[in-house]
């Protein structure tokens, strides 16, 4: 677990350094994620490796980490009351548009590629 967290922080740190140093528009942790992915592909560690177990544990409680920024909502009561229509309307409809466009485009492209090659993917349970 300790080893795992340490490696995650090392990859985040290298990601942040690259983002700052090369002035990339990409956030450091995302670069860290891509670097760790490459490292895992090359090294192929066993399932009991610290970095795999540490990651699994951290991700099991991913929502916990969003609690502090989420609590920030309480400071915006006045704005939310005053502009509730553009906020809820904009948020809900554009969320729906983004979800539908992304999901349907991927589905369509997979279907075109696999045409005649049987059903695409699994059914939802």
């Amino acid at each position: 677990m300790l080893n795992g967290i340490m490696w995650l922080l090392v990859f985040q740190f290298v990601g942040e350094l690259l983002a700052r140093g090369l002035d990339l528009p990409v956030p450091g942790p995302v670069i860290g994620m891509l670097l760790l992915f490459i490292a895992l592909q090359v090294r192929r560690p066993p399932e009991q490796a610290g970095v795999l177990r540490g990651s699994d544990r951290l991700l099991r409680h991913l929502q916990l980490l969003f609690v502090p920024p989420a609590v920030g909502v309480i400071t915006y009561g006045a704005v939310l009351r005053e502009d509730w229509l553009p906020i809820t309307g904009g948020l809900l409809l554009s969320w729906l548009a983004g979800l539908a466009v992304t999901g349907l485009l991927v589905t369509l492209m997979l279907r075109l590629r696999n045409r005649g090659a049987g059903p695409v993917g699994e059914q939802p349970s």
Partner: peptide, 28 residues
Amino acid sequence: DYEEYLNGGAIIAFFLGPATVALAVPLY
């Protein structure tokens, strides 16, 4: 107030960084 809450809240939110890196594992 929220600022006072964040004295501790920021410690939890800090782990969003390594958790983002950790998303490489399910992808792998």
